[in-house]
Design a protein around this nucleic acid. Structure first.
Lengths: 336, 336
DNA sequence: CTGTTAGCGCGTTCAT
DNA sequence: ATGAACGCGCTAACAG
């Protein structure tokens, strides 16, 4: 019962191996009658075609590799889920790789995925630490199908789908300014990476529009993007006096900040307003529901995977990038 | 540059294909000198062995399938991350499948994974809806290597690793009773599934120990295990009068409940205490840090994957189950 | 419409 | 220690 091959099927159905193969693959060149015969044999023998032999002869693995920074931040988990669904709906499998937010690990993970014969790569970029992208450059040169999702690397400015982060940050900041908040602080991990740069830009844009100055102490850099980063950041921020409002680079950091503020006796939003970015599925069910900027994950996954399959079909495909619109989600944490 | 095969390597190294193969696989039968020669050729040609040919001839895919209910609840994301790491550390790849909390979808997802040639299955069981497990029975009969993680199906009582949920629930309930809480309500989605049964049992155990009665209205069943379920559940609970404390079946539900209680004007824990289960990485950074029962995910993943690889090596391996101890994590949400 | 056959790239015997 | 040859299971091109 371990090794029933197409030969057995062919024998039982009384046809040749080739015919059996075409029948199984529903080729139009085979008559309905023999197809039925073959189907029955398949049923009876509980036959399942050998994917390796298949891949060997077609050179398609029907497999995509997916690189995720980590699963502590639910953002990546949710995104991974949508990516899996999209890939699955195209009859492909999704091989997971973890980069642990490190370029070196990303390189190794990609290497392993390639060793498994993935036809393309969905890469959620690492967002902290120094960037050594030689592994990606080699792939890019070879036009290996890959798409960057939710962010991209400046050194490899191609084939990505993400939200217009600057605009989101702009909308959010603008809203806060309109509400009368004035000393707003923006908080993140590594300011060299794309996501933070774009958000900072939106932040400046809004302030400029209001003809207001920004002092350097309003830009806070913590050592990471997780809630610990939020803890650090809020301590740093408070040293320069109490801000009106805090914008965190993501929802998890925002939660860390709210938690810390509450522990220190501040009320949110009465004393200090806090906003996040992402709109995780848990962000709306916080004790103080979180104002944030929604990233349309499902759409992002859909567009990213579509793009990847285009590249797989035609590697020379013109390189594009898709930029989705963010949505302001206003909840209690910034109410005035 | 697409199709450099072992032939090219052998040619460049000036050896036969067979020798090249052994050299690449570091066989002791090949001399250091020729190995070096081959290594250099591999380097120069940027050779990468064809996984399909390899799998075809060895009949190992070096791939494991993993079934996850969904990625809305961060519990599953975190678990998936640890599983990936464990599988990866053994040189295997992790193919993801989503069951969307439905048995029918689980069956299809498993079928697809098998079509990809996975050598084993890590299954995080579906926890709602009716259970039709014929697909799993067939696999079980064939001794196909599979391990259930974080829960199991009663109809297939084998090869699972989970935490002693009853004990966790018992410890938690006991603690609440010791604190003086008396009308405690326990809340979940589908009470027919293993996790809820075990937790209920722990709940009863604690009450029994205190010689207290439990009224049916203390056991609340919502339509699902997510935060919406929490919303429903708390409405139902309040209809029978205000409870002292609420135990949710997982942290996400607990968050939903706290959020709802706050919106209704209740204070947590002053008016109603709330506890969860799981100890997600975000549970400690809630505005009111959440009391909960920690499930040791990393250990669970480690044990589960170890067990799976034992089964892969020897399908007739005696069936076991590993039960890990939960840990009570007391935070603000149940303080008195 | 169907049967025959030649690879796909690698691992693994046998010989040498 | 190394080379030659075969087979893994399947697809596709070619015949008929």
């Amino acid at each position: 019962m371990e090794k029933t091959t197409i030969k057995d099927v062919a024998a039982l159905a009384g046809v040749s191996v080739g015919t059996a193969s075409m029948a199984i693959n529903d080729s139009p060149r085979i008559s309905e009658d023999t197809k039925k015969l073959v189907r029955e044999a398949v049923q009876k023998l509980d036959y399942r075609r050998n994917p390796f032999a298949r891949s060997l002869s077609t050179s398609f693995s029907r497999t995509i590799g997916c690189l995720i920074p980590d699963f502590q931040n639910p953002f990546f988990g949710e995104l991974a889920g949508y990516l899996q669904e999209e890939v699955d709906s195209r009859g492909y499998g999704l091989l997971l790789g973890l980069t642990n937010r490190s370029c070196a690990i990303e390189a190794k993970a990609i290497d392993k995925l390639l060793d498994h014969g993935v036809e393309g790569l969905l890469i959620v970029p690492v967002d902290v630490g120094p960037l050594n992208l030689s592994h990606l450059h080699k792939l890019a040169q070879n036009h290996f199908p890959m798409v960057f999702v939710s962010s991209f690397y400046k050194q490899i400015p191609m084939n990505y789908v993400m939200t217009q982060l600057q605009e989101g940050s702009y909308m959010l900041t603008r809203h806060l300014l309109e509400q009368g908040y004035r000393s707003i602080v923006i908080v993140s991990g590594d300011p060299d990476q794309v996501p933070f740069e774009q958000r900072i830009a939106g932040f400046y844009q809004a302030y400029r529009e209001f003809n207001l100055e920004i002092s350097p102490s309003q830009i806070i850099r913590a050592s990471g993007n997780s809630f610990q980063g939020g803890y650090e950041a809020i301590e740093m921020a408070l040293r320069h006096g109490k801000p009106d409002a805090v914008e965190a680079i993501n929802d998890v950091m925002a939660m860390g900040i709210i938690s810390r503020l509450k522990a220190k006796g501040y009320k949110v939003p009465e004393d200090i307003a806090v906003a996040g970015y992402d709109d995780l599925s848990i962000s709306g069910i916080q004790e103080t529901p979180l104002s944030t900027v929604k990233q349309p994950l499902q759409e992002m996954a859909h567009e990213g995977v579509s793009m990847l399959f285009q590249l797989i079909r035609n590697r020379e495909e013109i390189q594009k990038s898709i930029i989705l619109s963010p949505n302001l989600v206003l909840r209690k944490s910034t109410e005035r």
